Simulated scan of single mutants.
Amino acid sequence: MDKMNLRRLILGGRAGLDPATLRESSAATREILLDQPWVQMAGLVACYWSIGTEPSTHGLVLALWKHGATVILPVQLPDGDLDWAVYDGPDSLAPGPSGIMEPVDTRRGVDAIRTAALVLVPALAVDRTTGVRLGRGRGCYDRALARVGPNVPTVALLHEGELLDGVPAEPHDQRVRFAALPSGIAQPATR
């Protein structure tokens, strides 16, 4: 299946998830992540502010921040690249140009993600063998992930059923080291 049809299939499945399932799923994923030593020890975390039926990151961002981590969130640039700014509590966000909540703090530049000890990214699917991540097709996170060091945990947040055998890949597609689901953390077999 090509990327466009796979995106359509997954987004259709997500549209059918009821609010209670979305809440329970996101809470389970958040707790599994917060139990990981490599999450607990991360001083600077790059994350994202979820929208719609994505696994919710709102409680996760707040928990990381309350536990002392510096959390940076993306600010989308006109060219589709991602700048980064610090999350400083719920009042530090405002709607960006596309309506997605963004931090209002000073921007740190596109290379700020290089200093993160942990990177949490959105995804529609991840290939269970290769770690190839399927995004929404704009390439924002592929560009950002290309700046992340090879030993930094990169984690895609998924709903159950979105860790797949075979995700179409192109040369620019970046892989993730882990996928976080309500049932646990998956690590692709090869990179």
Rank of each mutant, 00 (worst) to 15 (best):
P97S: 11
M4N: 06
A112T: 04
L124K: 01
D81N: 11
W65Y: 12
A27C: 08
R8A: 09
P182G: 10
P103H: 08
A112W: 14
R114M: 13
I10C: 15
A146Y: 05
A144Q: 07
G131R: 06
T57Q: 00
P74V: 03
A179W: 05
G109D: 08
L73G: 00
W84H: 13
I51A: 03
V39F: 12
L11K: 13
I100R: 00
V71G: 07
H58C: 07
L62G: 12
V71N: 02
P19S: 05
A180H: 02
R136E: 10
V148H: 01
V110T: 15
E162N: 05
A189C: 15
A156S: 09
D35C: 13
V126S: 08
D88S: 12
L157F: 05
G12R: 14
L6G: 01
T130Q: 09
C140H: 13
G68M: 11
D127M: 07
W38I: 10
I185S: 06
P153K: 05
T190K: 10
D79P: 15
T115F: 06
E24K: 11
G161Q: 05
T57M: 06
T29H: 02
T190H: 08
M41G: 07
L118E: 11
E170G: 14
L120Q: 14
T106Q: 07
R177K: 13
D79L: 12
L157C: 04
G68E: 09
M101R: 09
A85D: 00
H172Y: 11
E102W: 09
F178R: 03
A20I: 15
G135D: 02
V148R: 01
A146V: 04
T70M: 08
P103K: 09
T57K: 02
R114T: 13
V39Q: 10
H58Q: 13
G184M: 02
R138F: 01
